[in-house]
Amino acid sequence: MRPVFMLFALLLAAQTLTASAQERAVPEYSAELEAEAREVGKSLRCVVCQNQSIEDSAAPLAADMRQLVRERLAAGDTPEQVRAFMTTRYGNFVLMKPPFQLDTLLLWLGPGLFLLLAGAGWFVYLRPRAQTPGLPEDLTADERLRLSRHLPDEAGS
């Protein structure tokens, strides 16, 4: 039978794999390096998980990647170099924050574009024009009456 929950499969895989990870002694790193490594780890996506950073993931490959991140930082790599190292091997997929490049142009400029469109829409729709204030002429008397009944009076609003 097909496993029903992807998560379940994930957990099971993680569990069968942890055995070998435990046999290695983990060298201790300084607190600063540890903190920097955690930042880098949070910016890298676990490639075998559904949607987690390597820092959050319980998958064994993520654990090895965490270890590698620490070793490279200890060897003097900058966070950027560590990310580049992972990107050359796994592609842009590993970056939680996609790079700014040609095919992500729309992604990065999109929000600004949306805001611009929305602002333009608001101004175009509400552009003041020198016209008589008050109710528009195209309402019939009946409609005006109905409208006035449905509207609470304006005082204080």
Partner: peptide, 14 residues
């Protein structure tokens, strides 16, 4: 390759 060194170098995911 017990600690995934080569695997990561090769971009292996599974």
């Amino acid at each position: 390759d017990a600690d995934s060194r080569l695997a990561i170098d090769l971009g292996v995911t599974g």
